[in-house]
Amino acid sequence: MAAILKVIASIVTGILVYTFFFGVLIDKPLSVGIFDRVYSAKRAYGDAIKAPKIVVAGGSGPFFSVRCETIEKETGIPCVNISIAVALGRETILEQVKQVAKPGDTVLLPWEFRMYFLDADEMRARISFPYIIRHEKQLAPALGADHFLEALFYFDLKYLFNALAETSRYMGGHRHSFDKEGRLTPQGDYQGHTANAGEKFRDKIDDFHSSAEEMPKIAALETPPSRLMAFFKWAEARNIRVLGTLPSSFDTTAPDQKAIGKIQSWYATSDTAEFFVLDNLNQYSKGCFFDSREHLNEECQTIHSKKIAAALSSHLSH
Protein backbone atom coordinates (compact mmCIF):
# COMPACT_ATOMS: atom_id res chain seq x y z
CA MET A 1 0.00 0.00 0.00
CA ALA A 2 2.86 2.36 0.83
CA ALA A 3 4.24 1.87 -2.67
CA ILE A 4 0.91 2.86 -4.22
CA LEU A 5 0.61 5.87 -1.92
CA LYS A 6 4.02 6.98 -3.14
CA VAL A 7 2.77 6.89 -6.73
CA ILE A 8 -0.27 8.97 -5.76
CA ALA A 9 2.01 11.43 -3.96
CA SER A 10 4.20 11.60 -7.03
CA ILE A 11 1.20 12.33 -9.26
CA VAL A 12 -0.07 15.07 -6.93
CA THR A 13 3.42 16.57 -6.76
CA GLY A 14 3.58 16.41 -10.55
CA ILE A 15 0.34 18.33 -10.93
CA LEU A 16 1.61 20.96 -8.49
CA VAL A 17 4.92 21.19 -10.38
CA TYR A 18 3.04 21.59 -13.68
CA THR A 19 0.76 24.25 -12.20
CA PHE A 20 3.66 26.17 -10.69
CA PHE A 21 5.69 25.88 -13.87
CA PHE A 22 3.01 27.18 -16.23
CA GLY A 23 1.00 29.24 -13.76
CA VAL A 24 3.89 31.16 -12.24
CA LEU A 25 7.19 30.56 -13.99
CA ILE A 26 6.72 30.26 -17.75
CA ASP A 27 5.18 33.02 -19.83
CA LYS A 28 4.82 34.05 -23.45
CA PRO A 29 5.71 37.71 -23.01
CA LEU A 30 4.95 38.65 -26.62
CA SER A 31 1.63 36.88 -27.14
CA VAL A 32 0.16 36.36 -23.63
CA GLY A 33 2.08 38.52 -21.15
CA ILE A 34 1.49 41.51 -23.41
CA PHE A 35 -2.20 41.48 -22.45
CA ASP A 36 -1.34 41.64 -18.79
CA ARG A 37 0.95 44.62 -19.26
CA VAL A 38 -1.58 46.48 -21.42
CA TYR A 39 -4.54 45.60 -19.17
CA SER A 40 -2.59 46.64 -16.09
CA ALA A 41 -1.84 50.05 -17.60
CA LYS A 42 -5.47 50.52 -18.64
CA ARG A 43 -6.84 49.38 -15.29
CA ALA A 44 -4.45 51.67 -13.46
CA TYR A 45 -5.80 54.64 -15.43
CA GLY A 46 -9.38 53.48 -14.90
CA ASP A 47 -8.83 53.15 -11.15
CA ALA A 48 -7.20 56.56 -10.94
CA ILE A 49 -10.10 58.48 -12.46
CA LYS A 50 -13.25 59.10 -10.51
CA ALA A 51 -16.79 58.02 -11.38
CA PRO A 52 -18.75 58.80 -13.39
CA LYS A 53 -16.55 57.66 -16.25
CA ILE A 54 -16.91 55.92 -19.59
CA VAL A 55 -15.40 52.45 -20.01
CA VAL A 56 -14.95 51.22 -23.59
CA ALA A 57 -14.60 47.44 -23.91
CA GLY A 58 -14.30 45.04 -26.83
CA GLY A 59 -11.64 43.39 -28.94
CA SER A 60 -8.93 45.04 -30.99
CA GLY A 61 -11.62 46.82 -33.09
CA PRO A 62 -12.45 49.43 -30.45
CA PHE A 63 -8.79 49.42 -29.30
CA PHE A 64 -7.79 50.83 -32.71
CA SER A 65 -11.04 52.52 -33.77
CA VAL A 66 -12.39 54.23 -30.64
CA ARG A 67 -10.37 56.94 -28.93
CA CYS A 68 -11.21 57.68 -25.33
CA GLU A 69 -8.88 60.64 -25.44
CA THR A 70 -11.23 62.28 -27.98
CA ILE A 71 -14.41 61.16 -26.19
CA GLU A 72 -13.06 62.60 -22.95
CA LYS A 73 -12.43 65.97 -24.66
CA GLU A 74 -15.78 66.02 -26.45
CA THR A 75 -17.99 64.93 -23.55
CA GLY A 76 -16.01 66.20 -20.60
CA ILE A 77 -16.39 62.78 -19.01
CA PRO A 78 -13.27 60.76 -18.14
CA CYS A 79 -12.90 57.70 -20.34
CA VAL A 80 -10.77 54.54 -20.31
CA ASN A 81 -10.45 52.15 -23.23
CA ILE A 82 -9.86 48.63 -21.90
CA SER A 83 -10.27 46.90 -25.26
CA ILE A 84 -7.43 44.67 -26.49
CA ALA A 85 -8.25 41.52 -28.47
CA VAL A 86 -11.33 39.51 -29.45
CA ALA A 87 -9.39 36.31 -28.87
CA LEU A 88 -9.56 36.88 -25.13
CA GLY A 89 -13.26 36.12 -25.38
CA ARG A 90 -16.45 37.69 -24.07
CA GLU A 91 -15.98 36.35 -20.55
CA THR A 92 -12.51 37.73 -19.99
CA ILE A 93 -13.38 41.07 -21.57
CA LEU A 94 -16.48 41.44 -19.39
CA GLU A 95 -14.55 40.37 -16.29
CA GLN A 96 -12.09 43.17 -17.00
CA VAL A 97 -14.97 45.63 -17.20
CA LYS A 98 -16.21 44.43 -13.82
CA GLN A 99 -12.84 45.28 -12.31
CA VAL A 100 -12.91 48.84 -13.64
CA ALA A 101 -16.56 49.96 -13.80
CA LYS A 102 -18.07 51.49 -10.69
CA PRO A 103 -21.64 52.64 -9.86
CA GLY A 104 -22.55 55.62 -11.96
CA ASP A 105 -20.19 54.71 -14.81
CA THR A 106 -21.16 54.08 -18.42
CA VAL A 107 -19.83 51.03 -20.26
CA LEU A 108 -19.66 51.24 -24.05
CA LEU A 109 -19.53 47.93 -25.92
CA PRO A 110 -18.70 48.46 -29.63
CA TRP A 111 -18.23 44.71 -30.04
CA GLU A 112 -16.93 43.10 -33.19
CA PHE A 113 -19.71 41.08 -34.83
CA ARG A 114 -18.07 37.73 -34.11
CA MET A 115 -18.06 38.46 -30.39
CA TYR A 116 -21.79 37.85 -30.47
CA PHE A 117 -21.82 34.54 -32.31
CA LEU A 118 -18.53 32.77 -31.62
CA ASP A 119 -19.15 30.28 -28.84
CA ALA A 120 -17.12 30.29 -25.67
CA ASP A 121 -14.97 27.34 -26.71
CA GLU A 122 -14.03 28.92 -30.02
CA MET A 123 -12.86 32.05 -28.28
CA ARG A 124 -11.22 30.32 -25.34
CA ALA A 125 -9.32 28.00 -27.66
CA ARG A 126 -6.88 30.81 -28.20
CA ILE A 127 -5.25 32.83 -25.49
CA SER A 128 -7.65 33.51 -22.66
CA PHE A 129 -6.86 30.21 -20.90
CA PRO A 130 -3.12 30.76 -20.55
CA TYR A 131 -3.76 34.44 -19.87
CA ILE A 132 -6.08 33.69 -16.95
CA ILE A 133 -3.95 30.90 -15.48
CA ARG A 134 -0.71 32.83 -15.76
CA HIS A 135 -1.82 36.42 -15.14
CA GLU A 136 -5.34 36.75 -13.76
CA LYS A 137 -5.93 33.77 -11.52
CA GLN A 138 -8.77 35.62 -9.78
CA LEU A 139 -10.82 35.18 -12.97
CA ALA A 140 -10.43 31.39 -12.89
CA PRO A 141 -13.48 30.64 -10.70
CA ALA A 142 -15.68 32.38 -13.29
CA LEU A 143 -14.66 29.70 -15.80
CA GLY A 144 -16.63 26.97 -14.04
CA ALA A 145 -15.20 23.56 -13.12
CA ASP A 146 -14.96 22.08 -16.62
CA HIS A 147 -13.38 25.07 -18.23
CA PHE A 148 -11.12 25.63 -15.25
CA LEU A 149 -9.58 22.18 -15.78
CA GLU A 150 -9.28 22.87 -19.50
CA ALA A 151 -7.53 26.14 -18.71
CA LEU A 152 -5.26 24.56 -16.11
CA PHE A 153 -4.20 21.79 -18.49
CA TYR A 154 -3.90 24.02 -21.54
CA PHE A 155 -0.12 23.97 -21.59
CA ASP A 156 1.77 21.45 -23.69
CA LEU A 157 5.39 21.15 -24.71
CA LYS A 158 4.80 23.22 -27.83
CA TYR A 159 3.60 26.05 -25.61
CA LEU A 160 6.74 25.66 -23.51
CA PHE A 161 9.09 25.76 -26.51
CA ASN A 162 7.38 28.83 -27.96
CA ALA A 163 7.35 30.46 -24.51
CA LEU A 164 11.10 29.95 -24.17
CA ALA A 165 11.65 31.42 -27.64
CA GLU A 166 9.42 34.42 -26.89
CA THR A 167 11.13 35.02 -23.56
CA SER A 168 14.50 34.97 -25.25
CA ARG A 169 13.33 37.46 -27.91
CA TYR A 170 11.73 39.66 -25.25
CA MET A 171 14.91 39.68 -23.20
CA GLY A 172 16.77 40.56 -26.40
CA GLY A 173 14.68 43.75 -26.66
CA HIS A 174 11.92 42.63 -29.04
CA ARG A 175 8.53 44.17 -28.20
CA HIS A 176 4.93 43.63 -29.30
CA SER A 177 3.57 46.68 -31.11
CA PHE A 178 1.11 47.29 -28.21
CA ASP A 179 4.10 47.38 -25.88
CA LYS A 180 6.20 49.97 -27.66
CA GLU A 181 6.63 53.34 -26.03
CA GLY A 182 4.12 55.92 -27.22
CA ARG A 183 1.72 53.40 -28.74
CA LEU A 184 -0.95 53.87 -26.05
CA THR A 185 -2.65 57.07 -24.99
CA PRO A 186 -2.98 57.42 -21.19
CA GLN A 187 -6.65 56.45 -21.69
CA GLY A 188 -5.61 53.14 -23.24
CA ASP A 189 -6.29 53.88 -26.93
CA TYR A 190 -3.98 52.67 -29.67
CA GLN A 191 -2.24 55.58 -31.41
CA GLY A 192 0.29 56.17 -34.14
CA HIS A 193 -1.54 54.05 -36.70
CA THR A 194 -1.75 56.86 -39.22
CA ALA A 195 -3.08 56.55 -42.76
CA ASN A 196 0.46 57.04 -43.97
CA ALA A 197 1.78 54.18 -41.82
CA GLY A 198 -1.10 52.01 -43.05
CA GLU A 199 -0.15 52.33 -46.72
CA LYS A 200 1.80 49.07 -46.55
CA PHE A 201 -1.44 47.23 -45.70
CA ARG A 202 -3.40 48.80 -48.56
CA ASP A 203 -3.44 45.71 -50.80
CA LYS A 204 -4.50 43.54 -47.89
CA ILE A 205 -7.35 45.91 -47.02
CA ASP A 206 -8.47 45.99 -50.65
CA ASP A 207 -8.76 42.21 -50.65
CA PHE A 208 -10.93 42.06 -47.53
CA HIS A 209 -14.73 41.92 -47.50
CA SER A 210 -16.75 43.93 -45.01
CA SER A 211 -17.14 42.39 -41.57
CA ALA A 212 -20.83 43.34 -41.87
CA GLU A 213 -21.16 40.19 -43.96
CA GLU A 214 -20.96 38.28 -40.67
CA MET A 215 -24.14 39.93 -39.34
CA PRO A 216 -26.60 37.29 -40.61
CA LYS A 217 -24.94 34.90 -38.16
CA ILE A 218 -26.11 37.19 -35.36
CA ALA A 219 -29.60 37.33 -36.86
CA ALA A 220 -29.61 33.52 -36.89
CA LEU A 221 -28.81 33.19 -33.18
CA GLU A 222 -31.65 31.58 -31.28
CA THR A 223 -30.48 32.71 -27.86
CA PRO A 224 -28.47 35.75 -26.80
CA PRO A 225 -24.93 35.32 -25.46
CA SER A 226 -25.63 34.32 -21.85
CA ARG A 227 -22.60 36.13 -20.42
CA LEU A 228 -23.72 39.38 -22.02
CA MET A 229 -27.20 39.01 -20.52
CA ALA A 230 -25.67 38.21 -17.12
CA PHE A 231 -23.50 41.28 -17.47
CA PHE A 232 -26.56 43.48 -18.06
CA LYS A 233 -27.99 42.21 -14.77
CA TRP A 234 -24.70 42.76 -12.98
CA ALA A 235 -24.56 46.34 -14.32
CA GLU A 236 -28.19 47.05 -13.54
CA ALA A 237 -27.70 45.97 -9.93
CA ARG A 238 -24.83 48.45 -9.60
CA ASN A 239 -26.43 51.37 -11.40
CA ILE A 240 -23.97 51.07 -14.27
CA ARG A 241 -25.26 52.09 -17.67
CA VAL A 242 -24.43 49.85 -20.64
CA LEU A 243 -24.49 51.27 -24.14
CA GLY A 244 -23.82 49.17 -27.20
CA THR A 245 -23.04 50.16 -30.74
CA LEU A 246 -21.89 48.54 -33.97
CA PRO A 247 -18.21 48.10 -34.65
CA SER A 248 -16.68 50.13 -37.45
CA SER A 249 -16.88 48.28 -40.77
CA PHE A 250 -16.38 48.82 -44.52
CA ASP A 251 -19.24 50.61 -46.24
CA THR A 252 -19.24 48.01 -49.00
CA THR A 253 -21.95 45.89 -47.32
CA ALA A 254 -24.94 47.43 -45.56
CA PRO A 255 -25.52 46.26 -41.99
CA ASP A 256 -28.13 43.55 -41.54
CA GLN A 257 -31.19 45.22 -40.00
CA LYS A 258 -32.45 41.95 -38.53
CA ALA A 259 -29.19 41.52 -36.64
CA ILE A 260 -29.36 45.10 -35.37
CA GLY A 261 -32.94 44.51 -34.25
CA LYS A 262 -31.92 41.34 -32.46
CA ILE A 263 -29.07 42.99 -30.58
CA GLN A 264 -31.33 45.91 -29.67
CA SER A 265 -33.90 43.46 -28.28
CA TRP A 266 -31.24 41.91 -26.03
CA TYR A 267 -30.23 45.32 -24.71
CA ALA A 268 -33.87 46.23 -24.21
CA THR A 269 -34.25 43.50 -21.58
CA SER A 270 -32.32 45.69 -19.16
CA ASP A 271 -33.48 49.04 -17.80
CA THR A 272 -29.94 50.40 -17.87
CA ALA A 273 -28.85 49.10 -21.28
CA GLU A 274 -29.39 50.56 -24.72
CA PHE A 275 -28.00 49.91 -28.20
CA PHE A 276 -27.50 52.73 -30.71
CA VAL A 277 -26.32 53.03 -34.29
CA LEU A 278 -24.58 56.11 -35.68
CA ASP A 279 -26.08 57.98 -38.62
CA ASN A 280 -23.39 56.52 -40.92
CA LEU A 281 -24.23 53.02 -39.60
CA ASN A 282 -20.66 53.00 -38.11
CA GLN A 283 -19.36 52.43 -41.65
CA TYR A 284 -16.42 54.03 -43.46
CA SER A 285 -14.71 53.67 -46.82
CA LYS A 286 -11.83 51.23 -47.10
CA GLY A 287 -9.42 54.17 -47.16
CA CYS A 288 -10.22 54.76 -43.47
CA PHE A 289 -8.90 51.38 -42.38
CA PHE A 290 -5.40 50.67 -41.12
CA ASP A 291 -4.32 47.00 -41.18
CA SER A 292 -7.56 45.02 -40.90
CA ARG A 293 -11.21 45.33 -41.75
CA GLU A 294 -11.98 46.31 -38.13
CA HIS A 295 -9.15 48.74 -37.36
CA LEU A 296 -9.68 52.38 -38.35
CA ASN A 297 -6.57 54.44 -38.92
CA GLU A 298 -5.80 57.24 -36.50
CA GLU A 299 -7.41 60.00 -38.56
CA CYS A 300 -10.69 58.13 -38.92
CA GLN A 301 -10.43 56.89 -35.33
CA THR A 302 -10.71 60.52 -34.27
CA ILE A 303 -13.64 61.23 -36.61
CA HIS A 304 -15.43 58.07 -35.44
CA SER A 305 -14.78 58.90 -31.80
CA LYS A 306 -16.26 62.37 -32.21
CA LYS A 307 -19.43 60.81 -33.62
CA ILE A 308 -19.53 58.35 -30.73
CA ALA A 309 -18.94 61.16 -28.25
CA ALA A 310 -21.90 63.07 -29.70
CA ALA A 311 -24.10 59.98 -29.46
CA LEU A 312 -22.96 59.30 -25.91
CA SER A 313 -23.67 62.91 -24.88
CA SER A 314 -27.14 62.60 -26.31
CA HIS A 315 -27.85 59.29 -24.56
CA LEU A 316 -26.31 60.33 -21.26
CA SER A 317 -28.25 63.57 -21.13
CA HIS A 318 -31.56 61.77 -20.70
Binding site: V7, S10, G14, V17, Y18, F21, F153, F155, D156, L157
Partner: peptide
Protein backbone atom coordinates in the same frame (compact mmCIF):
# COMPACT_ATOMS: atom_id res chain seq x y z
CA UNK B 1 8.57 8.33 -9.26
CA UNK B 2 10.71 11.41 -9.90
CA UNK B 3 10.11 11.12 -13.65
CA UNK B 4 6.36 10.77 -13.03
CA UNK B 5 6.38 13.95 -10.94
CA UNK B 6 8.10 15.77 -13.80
CA UNK B 7 5.88 14.55 -16.62
CA UNK B 8 2.44 13.68 -15.25
CA UNK B 9 1.00 17.17 -15.85
CA UNK B 10 1.97 17.00 -19.51
CA UNK B 11 0.53 13.49 -19.72
CA UNK B 12 -2.83 14.61 -18.26
CA UNK B 13 -2.81 17.55 -20.69
Amino acid sequence: LIIVALVVGLVIQ
